[in-house]
Design a protein around this nucleic acid. Structure first.
Length: 279
DNA sequence: AGCTACTCCTGGTAGC
DNA sequence: TGCTACCAGGAGTAGC
């Protein structure tokens, strides 16, 4: 599922194809994708809009479309965005198409239809409360230490909470916790400063490397807008490696369920909150 | 505050 | 081979 590195990759790859273009028309094949606005209204309002900027916040991609108009996209589970050349065949599972002034077409593709592409005046109308960007200067080790101290929740649900920290999802949370040798059920306020710093460093390092590798493509869904798979899945230490040996200690990777989410750990490297290896 | 349960979806796969 | 049942999960919401 697309998380911060995948979303950042999408933004980087579609940006040069969109900047300076103007949207001339829209086609909506699945009305829910554009939220509560009617397809007719969406089409009428977006036509003629210039694409001034393409940026990312957490897992959202935002298209600034002139004064007091923007398009806010979220890929959720299986969403993709791409810009196809004039005259080329439409992709399967396209939910929204935006015809651009050079003949190319922006496509929002989404097999499971969870993704959204919302037209609004300001992004804040669409964004829920979002925590800091993990790769920004705001996300310092000191801030993270203090923020963890204020929360009693288990690390896994806390790190998945976008209002705490924006951009992490199931994969990168599991990877970061393993890198920092922390069990997903450890409680945030019980971490030592050293452990909090290790987690902070792990989150940043993993996200940076994943972006460098254009994200992860562990199943048939995620592809970069150029149609290429990402490369970070080869770096996975725990995610999707149930039963395989931990690359650090050889113990088999275990899968558990935490907060309805599949969770992957090395029971030897990541000690349970009780201080014993997980059952 | 933070937990669980439920909802939205459908391709892939396990089991028969 | 062909069918059915179930799984994956981000995030919003409801209820406790």
């Amino acid at each position: 599922m697309p998380e911060l590195p995948e979303v950042e990759t999408v933004a980087r790859l579609i940006r040069p194809r969109l900047l300076g273009r103007r949207i001339v028309d829209a086609r909506i094949d699945w009305p829910r994708t554009v939220g509560t606005m009617s397809p007719a209204s969406f089409r009428k309002r977006i036509a003629g809009s210039p694409i001034d900027r393409v940026w990312r916040r957490g897992k959202y991609i935002v298209f600034d479309l002139g004064p007091r108009r923007c398009l806010v996209g979220h890929l959720r589970m299986t969403g993709r965005m791409q810009v196809r050349e004039p005259g080329s065949e439409p992709s399967p599972y396209v939910k929204v198409s935006l015809a651009l002034d050079d003949g190319s077409v922006f496509e929002f593709i989404d097999v499971r239809k969870f993704g959204r592409l919302i037209l609004a005046e300001e992004p804040d109308e669409v964004f829920p409360k979002l925590g800091p960007e993990p790769l920004s200067d705001e996300f310092t080790a000191a801030w993270f230490r203090a923020a963890l101290k204020r929360r009693s929740r288990a690390l896994k649900p806390l790190l998945l909470d976008q209002s705490f920290l924006a951009g992490l999802g199931n994969i990168y949370v599991d990877e970061a916790l393993h890198a920092a040798r922390l069990h997903p059920l450890r409680h945030a306020d019980r971490l030592t400063g050293k452990a909090a710093d290790a987690l902070h460093a792990a989150i940043r390092a993993i996200l940076e490397e994943a972006i460098e590798r254009e994200g992860s493509s562990f199943d048939t869904f995620y592809r970069t807008p150029e149609g290429q798979p990402g490369d970070y899945q080869h770096q996975f230490q725990v995610y999707g490696r149930t039963g395989k040996p931990c690359r650090r200690c050889e113990a088999p990777i275990r899968r558990l369920v935490v907060g309805q989410r599949g969770t992957h750990i090395c029971a030897r490297c990541q000690r349970s909150p009780r201080g014993r290896p997980s059952p």
